[in-house]
Every structure is written in structure tokens, then in C-alpha cells.
Amino acid sequence: MRYRVRHLTEYVYGAPVTLCYNMAHLLPRDTGNQTCLSRRLHVTPMPIYQTEGTDYFGNPTYYFSIQEPHKKLTIDVECLYEVTPLELANQLTLGSITCGELRQLLTDAGTPELRMVKEYLLNSPLIPRTAELAAFAQDTFADHVPVLQAALDFTHKIFNEFTFDPTATSVSTPVDQVLKEKRGVCQDFAHLAIACIRSVGLPARYISGYLETLPPPGQEKLVGADASHAWFAIYIPEMGWVEFDPTNDLMPSDQHIVTAWGRDYSDVTPLQGVIFDGGDSQNIKVSVDVQRC
């Protein structure tokens, strides 16, 4: 399957910004079933300095600096992807290791790979481990349950017990509030799943990207109506990192497009940086289009 993804971000400031330094996680990342065939990135005003790099987690990064006064900043990224469907049926037959066995493997951590995986057991800036979170997940991730089955069941649990509500949270809403109110968006559900999984001693990471959405039957797809998406992955030794989408109660295959992964959203924020001046207010508008080619 081929997808063309356009991600347009516009900032409008209350007063001119005289200087800005930024880092973006908007460039494509290749994965085991995803390849970027082409890409285009355009920033307005023209940066005086720009360079690409790779962050600690292997995600492509784009750094740029603008040193002329501007009241509007536009970052326009367009990429063409080739996405190969994952063999989910084969994955379901591979996941035999139990939660208890994985916890013991991580305690021993006898290989470099397992030692690196242990990083995803720790607290991260937006995801703490707590007894309350562990209590919510401990029955699902009991020692005798295969990790893959537990992750599937927990994805289903979040989907059934939580309500998608874009007005209930913000990017900084803590996971304990999401657990209490049982409302949120894809970022909240991914953070909650990761927080619970880590709280029961298993490794999980945050994934940011895009999801192909389809209009209701008989209606045309609106330009700019798509959005960024978030889901999570859990580590299973014989399988590697296996992905789950609790917002949609499924295992991603060929409709999810990965941009970046890390410990939580703070590691893969689409744009972060420093501005000088700009007044007391700023408005941001994000438009995303995911189209099959």
C-alpha cells in the first residue's frame, strides 16, 4: 500500500518573533514494513540554518533557525510511503512467552538487547509508574498469561472502558487523571497503556505517526481532516517490538504510518524549540492528509 502524507503546521504570533531555534520530528522513519519513497520539506520564512540528524532513539530530526522577524511560521512536510501489511496471524502464533517469564528475563538481562529494553521499564517525563496503575493492569498481565495475549486483552480493556473525548484532556494531562476520568484521546490511551505495563514490570514504548481514516459511505474525504495518531508497542523477545492501538482496539498492520518512537510524547514532539519575543499569544493550526496512491 502506498500513502502520500502531508503535514502542514502554521503558527501565528501576536507580535513578531525576532529569533527562533527549533527541532522537528516530522521527517519519515523507515521500519520493518514501511519505506519512505520520497519527501519534501519547506519552511517559511526561509531558515538561515537547517540540518538533519538522528536522535537517541534513532528518529530522524530536523533542526532549523530563523533570524528574521516573522509573525507566521509554516512547516510543510509531504512524504510518499510504501507500507507492507504485517502478517498478524503469524504474530499471534509466535507469542508464547508469559509475563512472568519475561519479567525474569529482564531481571537477569543476559544480552545487550535486553539491557537496552530495560530502559522502557523506567519512569519517563510524562509517564510515572504507580501502585494504582499496576492494580489496574495486574490481573491482565498475571505471570501465567502470554505477553501477547495480555497486551491484546489490555488493548481491548482500554477500548471498552474508556471514552474517546477530544475535549477532556490536553497534551499535559497526567495519566492518573485519565485513569480516574476514563476519557481522552489517542495520546492519553497510549500513555495510559504504557504507564500500566511499566507499572507491572514490562517494557513498553510510545509511537507517534499517522492513521489512514476513511469518510462515511457516500461522502468525500475532507482535505486536512486527518490527524496525527499515537499508539504503543510492547517488547516480546521472540517477536521484537509488537504494536497495539488501544484507541481502535487493534494491532496495526498497513494503515498506521510511523514517524517516531520514544519513552513518551515528550521524546517525539512534532515541533519544539525556543522563540524570542512573539507577544503574549500564539495560535497553532495543524492540517494532516493521508491519501492512498
Rank of each mutant, 00 (worst) to 15 (best):
G58C: 10
Y11M: 00
D264F: 10
T98N: 07
P215W: 12
L152Q: 13
G279A: 12
L148K: 00
W261M: 13
H144E: 15
K157R: 12
C79L: 00
Y265N: 04
H256S: 05
C79K: 00
E238Y: 00
H191I: 07
P112G: 14
T9E: 01
Y206G: 02
A134W: 14
G58N: 08
R183D: 03
E113A: 14
D277F: 09
I66L: 11
E212P: 00
G184Y: 04
G279V: 11
D226G: 02
F64C: 00
E87H: 10
N33T: 14
I127H: 14
C36E: 11
I194E: 06
T163C: 08
Q255E: 12
L37W: 07
K285N: 12
K72H: 09
V171C: 05
P128D: 13
M251E: 02
T35V: 08
P128C: 13
T259G: 01
Y3C: 02
I234Q: 00
R29P: 01
P45Y: 11
R2V: 01
N283G: 10
K72Y: 00
D254K: 04
G58P: 04
R115Y: 07
M116C: 13
M23W: 00
Y265C: 04
M46N: 11
Y210Q: 07
W261H: 14
R39W: 09
R39I: 03
L222M: 09
L105Q: 15
T107S: 13
S208I: 02
L152Y: 04
E68R: 15
L192D: 04
R292D: 02
T269R: 09
G279P: 05
D289K: 04
T98E: 09
A142M: 09
D245N: 07
P174F: 08
Q219D: 05
S287F: 11
C196A: 15
T61H: 06
Q34H: 05
V17Y: 11
A150E: 08
T98C: 05
T269D: 00
G278E: 06
E212H: 09
Q104P: 00
S96Q: 15
E68N: 09
L121A: 13
I127D: 11
N33V: 11
G53I: 01
T74R: 14
N59W: 02
P216I: 05
L106H: 10
I158W: 09
L122T: 12
F141Y: 14
T155M: 02
A225M: 01
G273M: 00
A225S: 14
S96K: 15
R29S: 12
F136P: 00
E101P: 06
A233M: 03
A142Q: 15
V288R: 10
P217S: 08
H25G: 00
E82M: 06
V12G: 06
R6G: 02
F162H: 06
T51A: 08
R129Q: 15
H144W: 15
T9V: 13
D108C: 05
L86N: 03
G184V: 07
S38K: 11
V223I: 12
C99A: 11
E87D: 15
A151Q: 06
P246A: 07
T140L: 10
N283C: 07
E238D: 05
R129S: 15
D139I: 12
V117G: 09
Y49F: 13
P146M: 13
D267G: 02
Y56D: 05
A260L: 08
T84M: 10
I197Q: 03
L102C: 12
